[in-house]
Design a protein around this nucleic acid. Structure first.
Length: 228
DNA sequence: GACCAGGCACATC
DNA sequence: GATGTGCATGGT
């Protein structure tokens, strides 16, 4: 199955325009958001980040110094708050240990090496690591999220059982290696995914409707969406 | 009241 | 290696 991803991008961009991702005033704030948004609605993440802002904690040393239990209470609106407080703490400790707390230094290191180091942190998986690289560090690492996978599978551009790495390689090998492009494309995929590729597809008015396979969208697990 | 949201780690088979 | 489960809040 071959699809020109650049055309997909262009169709989405022509339809929706720029998405202005990632909201956040600093690299640290974006990293915090990347952890807090794990399996969580962005609105709730915003509440949590606002709590941190009001507490003056959107600054590396301040955030690293606070007790994990206190941090947990502040980020409570984002859900999974005890777990996420630990994850944020783990991340900050790694940055302190390896880069002396300097995000500038961190993002100046080899992206592949940095990605591996992020993945070593307990609580940072592929999507969170790539979000940090791309949106906080402006480094060209394609972010694959649930919407991306769903949009690609529904259109038959990738195998139904393709995993994170496979989808990422597919995207990165089909597109010029450009952080600004990866940034905008991922944001657009989330947009179209939210509006048209929920658990039930809504293809009417979808800017990618012309790219559907004959017979309509493919299901992720072919017993459900397939038959109906 | 059920379901979902910009995941990940860990236990179990 | 695949599958299941805990983590938890707030909106629809």
């Amino acid at each position: 199955m071959t699809v020109a991803l650049r055309e997909v991008f262009q169709q989405l961009y022509d339809h929706y325009g720029p998405q202005h991702w990632w909201p956040g005033e600093s690299a640290l704030e974006i990293m915090v958001g990347a952890v807090l948004t794990q399996n969580t609605n962005w609105k709730n993440v915003e509440r949590a980040i606002e709590n941190l802002r009001e507490a003056g904690l959107l600054e590396f040393d301040a955030l690293r110094s606070i007790r994990v239990e206190e941090l947990a209470e502040l980020i409570r609106p984002a859900g999974y708050y005890r777990q996420k407080a630990r994850r944020l703490h783990n991340l900050l400790e790694m940055i302190h240990r390896r880069y002396g707390g300097s995000l500038e230094e961190m993002f100046a290191t080899d992206p592949q090496l940095l990605r591996r180091r992020l993945l070593e942190v307990n609580g940072i998986g592929p999507e969170t690591a790539d979000s940090i690289l791309l949106y906080a560090g402006n480094l060209p690492s394609f972010v694959v999220d649930a919407y991306t996978a769903r949009v690609f599978k529904r259109h038959g551009w990738i195998e139904p059982d393709a995993d994170y790495h496979t989808i990422q390689q597919f995207c990165q090998s089909s597109l010029p290696c450009d952080a600004a492009l990866f940034n905008e494309f991922h944001a657009l995929l989330v947009r179209v995914g939210k509006e048209h590729c929920g658990t039930r597809p809504k293809c009417e008015g979808c800017p990618l409707a012309n790219l559907l396979p004959e017979g309509g969208p493919l299901g992720e697990d072919r017993q459900e969406a397939g038959e109906a």
